[in-house]
Write a protein that binds this DNA or RNA. Structure first.
Lengths: 110, 110
DNA sequence: TCTGAGTGCAACTATCTGGTTGCCTTTCGG
DNA sequence: CCGAAAGGCAACCAGATAGTTGCACTCAGA
């Protein structure tokens, strides 16, 4: 896999790699767009912590936020989630290829 | 998505969320099983750093290592990678469901 | 216009993490 | 048997990160 792809994929996975943050992302994926207040109401951590997590997710491109009146509404960016899936798929393919080469090496006559 | 699944998925993504570490994982997926010495030979960081990363990947269940003589050989655990893919797929489905509900709400007659 | 709900900003703290260096143990090969 | 290769262990360091608290700002609505 190309170096550029790894450089792009790592921060994506890192953003999903915190439990509180992943929970927020799953919540947004389940309920659709929500405000910070509503999100933090059902969260064990502070509103500020929630806000920081949302900021990190948005920097990774996984969510997108917009001001609406005095609220800020966050919603999932499915394109970026698809990217993450694609990266995992590619790694899977790499492994399949490696396995194929190994089999052809061990059983050249097959 | 269940809380238990989130608790399982987060460390998985976290393990893939560091660039050097993801690079090592991709390398192992591409070339097949390799020793620490061979892995760290082509890495910009120390052998110790490589060793720590491999340890983290193995704790996440993504790779498996075995002693062979004075070497330690590491190889990818494809089952766990499939887990990660499945988690992303599930989140995607959540989002699709939410979108579906939204559409039925907005255009009830369609 | 005044109150409160919803956020943003900043400072601070404790812990985690990626990385290093130094040294010791194990094992292969001549 | 001895030297070197491969690796493990432990201490240490700097910066990132998850979380907090406190205060200031901005709208919406009665």
């Amino acid at each position: 896999m190309e170096a550029a792809q790894v450089r792009d994929a790592a921060p994506l996975f890192a953003a999903l790699g915190d439990e509180t943050r992943l929970r927020l992302f799953v919540r947004l994926s389940t309920t659709g767009p929500e405000s910070i207040a509503r999100l933090s109401a059902k969260s064990p951590v502070t509103r500020q912590a929630v806000s920081k997590h949302l900021d990190i997710l948005s920097r990774a491109g996984l969510i997108r936020g917009a001001r609406r009146g005095r609220e800020r509404i966050w919603e999932v960016e499915p394109k970026r989630l698809a990217d993450a899936r694609q990266y995992l798929d590619r790694i899977s393919l790499l492994w399949d290829d490696a396995l194929g080469r190994l089999k052809r090496f061990v059983e050249p006559q097959a």
